[in-house]
């Protein structure tokens, strides 16, 4: 069980947020704080790199779609990158991938922002 960690990196107008560990009821308030801080700086183009994520619960997923909605209202989005297969299967099954865009690689995620 890894501790939940968040690392941020700005690349031009895109904010990369790397997540590792478990995103559950305990940890998701920390992600909320980080994303709220970005929104307060009018940073609405966000890529969440999930390559090192172990788990995501509905509290985390609910927060993500809420933030995606808020970002889209400002011509931005919250996109998911490199979601591990085990998590991807679950979020596809639940239907979250109908409203959250998921990309296997960085170039595709960046291109999606470029064309939006």
């Amino acid at each position: 069980m890894k501790d939940f960690r968040i690392e941020r990196e700005a690349r031009g107008a895109i904010q990369f947020v790397r997540l590792s560990g478990s995103l559950d009821m305990y940890s998701f308030p920390r992600l909320e704080t980080q994303l709220n801080a970005l929104f307060q700086q009018a940073q609405y183009r966000i890529i969440l790199d999930c390559a090192d994520l172990d788990y995501i619960g509905s509290a985390g997923l609910g927060a993500l779609i809420g933030f995606a909605k808020q970002a889209r209202e400002h011509q931005g989005d919250v996109k998911l990158l490199r979601v591990p297969e085990r998590i991807l299967k679950i979020i596809e099954l639940l239907g979250f991938t109908k409203v959250l865009q998921v990309f296997p690689d960085e170039a595709a995620a960046l291109a999606a922002f470029g064309s939006s």
């Binding site: 509905s58 509290a59 997923l61 609910g62 927060a63 779609i65 809420g66 995606a68 909605k69 639940l94 239907g95 979250f96 109908k98 409203v99």
Partner: peptide, 15 residues
Amino acid sequence: PLEEGIRKLQRGGFG
């Protein structure tokens, strides 16, 4: 229904 909440981009209530 789960699908409805997700489609409406609700923040929670999926548990």
